[in-house]
């Protein structure tokens, strides 16, 4: 397997605070990899370590097969980064912002011009290229920052909470742009987020961290099935205490509880739904609707955090 990023026991302290704690990760090349965790989990610090912006306290990092501290320039020339802040020069126009970075990436005048036009057109910003960035909405700025990240076609891209602070439709549009514009390039994307549905929509693999520690890695589907049991939601009338007790005694049932307007049954295994429904009916319940579902990634995530909290 070809890995874009490998870390081994990566650790970074700030004084007595351990921001990243013995993190061992492998990010396959060409994949969108999500680092998922609540605020303060150590996501930004991890990106800084991977880009060689900060030295680790201990542990190893390889990015594109190189050491980001020893070979900083080589690593960073092949990476694009949209960090916590968009990093745009607000006093300059959109076009000048891109032009500056194209110069930094040592593109010649002709390819600068061509690439900037291609990106701005692709994002629907070409007509507004002369406007000063300060006047733009956050959504447009993030789009422009994405264009800046893609300028030199880097094989590896870091995105630190790219949709934070955007409303839902703007965030969705940005994700779409991102996917569209990196689709053919085979780019590896290392993305941090505290937004689960974002991770689920974008990422082939997700690593969940908290307090700098890795809690789990896997595809969103794997994480969900690992953490969440299948469930049954039953809507209707006459769902009383007696029904609840009867259900609880069934072998395949993990737990039963009332939630607002419905009964929530946690299943130990994908048990026979029909038998359980029949039981309820026999107890005098009038059932209107039965829904079967597995846990959302959100629940999986929360249960991971819970589990870890207890220990």
């Amino acid at each position: 397997m070809n890995y874009a990023i490998q870390t081994h026991q990566l650790t970074r302290d700030f004084g007595s605070l351990r921001a990243v704690d013995r993190l061992t990760l492998e990010v396959p090349a060409g994949q969108i990899f999500g680092l998922l965790g609540p605020n303060g989990a150590g996501k930004t610090t991890t990106i800084r370590l991977l880009l060689g912006l900060l030295p680790p306290t201990s542990g190893q990092v390889r990015v594109l097969g190189m050491d980001p501290l020893q070979q900083g320039e080589a690593v960073r020339s092949r990476c694009g980064a949209l960090l916590e802040h968009s990093g745009l020069y607000e006093r300059l126009s959109a076009e000048d912002n891109l032009d500056l970075y194209a110069r930094i990436w040592r593109m010649d005048a002709a390819s600068r011009k061509k690439r900037i036009r291609e990106l701005l057109e692709g994002l629907g910003l070409w007509e507004r290229r002369k406007e000063t960035v300060a006047e733009w909405s956050r959504g447009m700025k993030q789009k422009l920052a994405i264009a800046r990240v893609l300028l030199h076609r880097p094989p590896l891209i870091f995105l630190d909470e790219p949709t934070a602070g955007l409303d839902v439709p703007t965030a969705a549009a940005l994700r779409e742009d991102l996917l569209r514009m990196t689709a053919q390039e085979g780019t590896t994307i290392f993305l941090t987020t505290h937004n689960l549905s974002e991770a689920e929509k974008l990422c082939a693999q997700v690593a969940v961290i908290r307090d700098g520690q890795l809690l789990a890695v896997g595809s969103p589907v794997e994480l969900r099935t690992r953490a969440g049991q299948p469930r049954l939601q039953v809507f209707g009338r006459g769902l009383n205490e007696r029904a609840l007790t009867v259900l609880q005694s069934q072998p395949g049932v993990g737990g039963v509880k009332f939630l607002n307007d419905h009964l929530e049954i946690a299943l130990k295994e994908p048990a026979e739904t029909a038998a359980l429904v029949k039981l309820l009916v026999e107890q005098g319940a009038e059932i209107e609707e039965v829904r079967k579902s597995t846990a959302s990634l959100e629940e999986a995530f929360l249960s991971l955090l819970e589990e870890n909290h207890v220990h």
Partner: peptide, 14 residues
């Protein structure tokens, strides 16, 4: 202060 420095530092520039 304007949060542009870190992005500049994340580029290849020595």
């Amino acid at each position: 202060e304007r949060h542009t420095l870190e992005t500049l530092l994340a580029s290849r520039l020595p």
